[in-house]
Amino acid sequence: MSSTGTESTTATAAVLALGDDALILSHRLGEWAGHAPVLEEEVALANIALDLLGQARILLSMAGDEDELAFLREERSFRNLQLVEQPNGDFAHTIARQLYFSLYQHELYGELAAGSGPFAPLAAKAVKETAYHRDHAEQWTLRLGDGTEESRSRMRAALDALWKFTGEMFQPVEGLDVDPAALETRWLAALGSVLDRAGLALPEGPRTGAWAAGAGRQGLHTEPFGRLLAEMQHLHRSHPGASW
């Protein structure tokens, strides 16, 4: 990363990966507004969504115009993980997605914050938010896992259903100066510890390989994603060039 030309190119891939993750998960959490199981969760989920949207705006602005990037790219140009685009499902599903992602994001930003790369300043701020998000997901995982029979079986089903999307988090991303294998080891340890306390086992089944899902970083997404973008972009695209 010595020449400025390569630096901007390589940085862009990483910027879009991290920015799109935050943008799309924020959007999904925004769908919960007015539908949460308890008022405190209306506040909490909106809070997390806002933090993520804030991260997305900073990241996308590093690569260009935030609105152009959010509203005028097509499905194949988005670089977010398939995990974050998965529909909300029930509360357990949302919490499982949140647990997988926030543990990953917290480990990742912790490492980036400690470094001196282009993401260090953002990560230093965001890591405080991700600690809060991780705590929220962990606390709910404990409550659902160790709550009632129904909540345990829902939580288990959600963890299982999303498991195949987690391998993708540890594919190397161009311009992202972290060691994916070490990140994965730490993620698995943190996840194992939470699930253990919740009386839940790590899901079994594949997370990587040609048969597993996970090519969002290459712009290959799952079917629900196109519909998400259609909703998100419709108004902006209907008024080309307008400012809001």
Partner: peptide, 12 residues
Amino acid sequence: EGAWVRDAASAY
């Protein structure tokens, strides 16, 4: 639809 979530929190 949130009843089972609140029940889980109480049981916990």
